[in-house]
């Protein structure tokens, strides 16, 4: 079906069952309601990480996704609070605005390669934070708080999306929303990577000069990919703002941008679902190490270094063998 093997299909089915039915059941049984917030965060961070992974796919190290998440969060918050839009319309708008900014920034910087591109993206997060502090519309250091919960959406009286404010269990609603968005993101990513655009990206990742000599418009594809990548960042950020019901200049920091990148490394750059796994492991790994107090960072970094040293192709390479499809 759709060119998938039955093994792949059953894998997807098990995964969907686990996140939509298994997790709520387990949480209900154990009473650990805080897990909803944790898993929702993982899903949203995985969306932003998917974007970073995509820029890796054209051979660029992107340490700037926090900037686009922050832009997305602000755009959605401003549209909801100041303009009065529905959150559900502000969400794609936030993604599109982040993509637009990515096009403008990408035009000059995507020519750079390797460490030069990485360095520039590293400062982007800080630039957006400073901009948010300076602009009147973002309220400076006070940020935007008291963002209302997403309102319901109905077309011709048929309710499409429920009103979050009227719900008893917003945690579950946000969890489902985040999971659905994550699944759409990764399904998109999977299709993209396995379609012609993905093949052209791979050709660019491996040899840009040769790619242009076979007629690939490399600067155009770089921009398109960077825009899609940042769209994912904007969506993830906007959802975060809506859940926290607030956005501050420090909502996403350079450390977050670094983590988005690490999620990709950890999961595996050769695997579409790598960043999803990487995000989950890194997020929980960090929390589990909390008990070690001041040694948390030390242990965390050591483990990361060891993983990158001994599993250069990421965690998923254990299962799929060396290199995978990359």
């Amino acid at each position: 079906m759709f060119g998938f093997t039955s093994k792949q299909l059953s894998g997807v089915a098990i995964f969907l069952f686990a996140i939509f039915i298994g997790v709520p059941l387990l949480i209900g049984l154990t009473g650990r309601w805080d897990f909803y917030f944790t898993l929702t965060s993982v899903a949203l961070l995985a969306i932003a990480s998917a974007g970073v992974w995509l820029t890796f796919y054209i051979g660029r190290i992107n340490i700037g996704q926090g900037a686009f998440a922050l832009i997305g969060a602000y755009v959605s918050a401003i549209l909801v609070v100041k303009v009065g839009w529905s959150f559900w319309i502000s969400l794609p708008a936030a993604g599109l605005f982040a993509a637009l900014v990515a096009v403008l920034i990408g035009l000059p910087i995507l020519r750079l390669r390797g460490v030069y591109f990485a360095m520039i993206t590293l400062v982007l997060t800080q630039v957006v934070t400073l901009t948010a502090l300076a602009l009147p519309i973002t309220n400076g250091a006070k940020g935007i708080s008291n963002i209302p919960l997403p309102s319901g959406v109905s077309i011709f009286g048929i309710p499409l999306l429920p009103d979050f404010a009227g719900m008893e269990n917003t945690k579950l609603a946000f969890y489902y929303t985040a999971c659905i968005l994550m699944i759409i993101t990764y399904a998109t990513l999977y299709r993209l990577v396995n379609s012609r655009l993905g093949h052209l990206c791979r050709s660019m990742q491996q040899n840009e000069e040769l790619a242009s000599s076979i007629g690939v418009n490399i600067s155009y594809i770089r921009i398109v990919i960077f825009a899609i990548s940042s769209f994912f960042g904007g969506i993830g950020g906007a959802m975060f703002g809506s859940i926290a019901q607030s956005v501050y200049p420090s909502s996403f920091q350079v450390a977050d941008s670094v983590n988005f990148m690490l999620n990709c490394f950890l999961g595996g750059l050769g695997f579409v679902f790598g960043p999803m796994l990487g995000t989950l492991v890194l997020y929980f790994g960090w929390d589990l190490l909390f008990e070690f107090g001041k040694y948390q960072m030390l242990i965390y970094s050591t483990v990361l270094i060891l993983i990158i040293r001994f599993l250069p192709n990421g965690l998923l390479s254990i299962r799929f063998g060396k290199g995978g499809d990359k």
Binding site: E209, S213, V216
Partner: peptide, 24 residues
């Protein structure tokens, strides 16, 4: 012009250095 535009017109260059996509 740009290499990809010239390639589209039918003039294509291979390189002195190895000209391949390594992992394909």
């Amino acid at each position: 012009l740009k290499p990809h535009i010239v390639a589209r017109k039918g003039v294509v260059r291979t390189f002195q250095e190895t000209t391949i996509f390594k992992s394909m």
